[in-house]
Design a binder for these strands. Structure first.
Lengths: 249, 249
DNA sequence: CAGTGGTCTAGACCACCGC
DNA sequence: CGGTGGTCTAGACCACTGG
């Protein structure tokens, strides 16, 4: 799709650098869906002449978006809009041994689905108004026949409407590709808050552990391309399966 | 200190980009201590003319080292060699409430110090030979009168010789500044492997918790400027005080 | 004020990729 | 082969910092 690029030349970098302004402009075009995830954006030379700036300047703008995880360069091929988060990203916190084998992708089963008004904490995180509804899911992930992760999700409802009534059997094992497929929502990044606790009787039953068994708890806030928080998730798993590596500076 | 910079002009970027070669050259000069942590390196213009390259090229080289955490740019002032890791970095994994107050820097007490041959796992991580000795420390960190973290460290011995006999009362609360002061070792980065377990009777006593109490375990490998692993550390703390935020992509 | 890094230009040539 | 991003140059001017 050839677009008129920017009609305004030298768009007055009001307080910003020109490449910062260009990065914001490109980000807006990506967020608005002008180029879909996986697509290539126009060549640097085309962008540079379109915006009437030097090549180096457009390259700096692109570098910002690459650092932000929005774009991806591929030598000799072009610059591409990154697909969102894969989906199996919770497993990076756990190492489940399955018959002494490597862990495969866990299967997923929806235990419950309901709609209710967002609670105050949810309203704040998801930027909702009093009375706005959320879709609440309970989900169990298993490796083979062994349950390993118990999740509870809250999704803001005008946005995730297609998930309200569709058959959960068609959802597949990964939610983020589902969001993209059915709701056009791309999850771009997430914040995971880790902690430890103990299982309630109900949680323990579903995970086939004992009441008060130690568990690792991951509270996730997931954000879309525009930077809005669009998913709240709490994941519980056996604390003794928790394992994670952090890099320090 | 004015140095002859590089005498070789166009040093044949054997398989590498020129800025990659320059970055390696600058890194070597930093590791060798030509500029101490906290010092400013020469201005970009001086480096560029010294190495007979364009300004932009030296800037790319510096950008690599900045991304690596080795250098730090300060607008209008210069480019500085970063001091090593602070020292209170373990607290990023824990939130200890102290009388409903914010947590201050914890005090430190050495419980034991001894020298013994490195165990096989230590030899591998620290790149030692059979029979090489390590200095082994046990350390308790407390907030006020409340113990909160129990640590066990292994330090390769030719390198940390000055710590073998010095008075531990003079060590202060932070080890990394001590390493720098007394052994000339700068800790540049670390890898923290998080896990979960239960306290033994002895560990529990020192932390004033019960035997088998759930604990978070941090196994750290710390690296110096040259990228060599020079410290192994295991830190234990109450699992219910553990709290950490991870960013996903 | 002088010196530093930060931004920007308008070119050139190279290395990689797919056809 | 033609097109893409990757490297490199040799300038210019701006913005920030400290004395």
């Amino acid at each position: 799709m050839t677009s008129p690029e920017a009609a305004t030349l030298n768009p007055a970098p009001a307080g910003q650098s020109r490449y910062g302004w260009l990065a914001a402009a490109l980000r807006a075009r990506i967020v608005q869906g002008e180029w879909a995830p996986g697509d290539a954006i126009p060549p640097e030379s085309a962008l540079a002449s379109g915006y009437a700036v030097a090549l180096g300047t457009i390259r700096q703008a692109i570098a910002l978006l690459v650092a932000d995880g929005l774009l991806e360069r591929r030598q000799g091929r072009g610059t591409f809009v990154r697909a969102g988060l894969g989906g199996a990203s919770m497993l990076r916190f756990f190492r489940f041994r399955q018959g002494g084998d490597l862990q495969a992708a866990p299967s997923s089963r929806i235990l419950s689905r309901k709609v209710r008004p967002a609670e105050p904490a949810e309203r704040e995180a998801l930027a909702l108004s009093p009375g706005d509804p959320v879709l609440v899911l309970e989900r169990l992930r298993s490796l083979g026949s062994q349950p390993c992760l118990l999740e509870s999700l809250a999704l803001p409802l005008p946005l995730f409407e297609p998930l309200k009534a569709s058959d959960t059997a068609d959802w597949g094992d990964l939610l983020y590709p589902l969001y993209q497929r059915t709701c056009g929502v791309t999850i771009h990044r997430a914040e995971d808050h880790l902690g430890f606790g103990r299982l309630t009787a109900g949680q323990a039953r579903r995970l086939r552990l004992e009441k008060d068994h130690p568990c690792a708890r991951v509270r996730r806030r997931a954000f879309d391309l525009a930077g809005r928080c669009v998913e709240l998730r709490t994941t519980l798993g056996d604390a003794f399966a928790f394992e994670y590596t952090a890099q320090v500076r």
